[in-house]
Nucleic acid binder design. Structure first.
Lengths: 99, 99
DNA sequence: CTACATTTGACAATTATTGTCAAATGACAT
DNA sequence: ATGTCATTTGACAATAATTGTCAAATGTAG
């Protein structure tokens, strides 16, 4: 479940239109449409507003959203997975034996 | 050991000046200086050239470089570590039970 | 067909990244 | 101390990426 899918699901569950939500968020329906379909990334502020409006757990959607940004960063990178591990180790132990 | 530190170490080991390297890379010494001290991020192309010039393992420096970009992305984020884990799981299993 | 919701794409506005330059600082020999 | 060269700093310009607007196209249901 991507961030966009999550948003769309919640919105439809509430029977709301793109227009209803996009107005509250302060953007054009076009952008929200694109966000829901993953054609564009939302900003952090937009995610925060959407979470509130659609009653989605902040923790959950923000984590999902950030992880997508990370995956985006390493996609098409030869050493993406290695880098991910190094990053994690760096956080865990401050600095790590990357060899 | 950050990417910048690695570059500086290798450069000094070879007894080369900022000017020597920056010319080969095609940038100003100011930028290289900043890159080495972590004040600026290098581009992927610059890293590739530096690896060749300074004889640093591509795999190693690119992994280090990318992991720093990831860490940069999640720094100051409340759910950075969680996101990192979700990202890793997503890669491992395609899509994951993030709950 | 009509009415309305959504999607699409061209483009503008804004923001972030990357680069240049010159002056300031540091290191060190004379 | 002065001179010389390497490095650093900061203001600014150029470029690239992101975010937004708008109107027309497409989809959907009555």
């Amino acid at each position: 479940m991507t961030t966009g899918e999550l948003i769309r699901e919640k919105r439809e569950l509430k029977g709301l239109l793109l227009r209803d939500i996009s107005t509250q968020v302060g953007i054009d329906t076009a952008i929200l449409s694109k966000i829901e379909r993953g054609e564009r990334k939302a900003t952090k502020e937009q995610i925060a507003k959407l979470a509130e409006i659609l009653e989605i757990e902040r923790c959950f959607i923000l984590t999902q959203y950030l992880s997508e940004k990370i995956l985006d960063e390493i996609q098409n990178e030869d050493f993406g997975i290695e880098a991910l591990k190094v990053a994690e180790q760096t956080i865990k132990y401050g600095r790590v034996n990357n060899k």
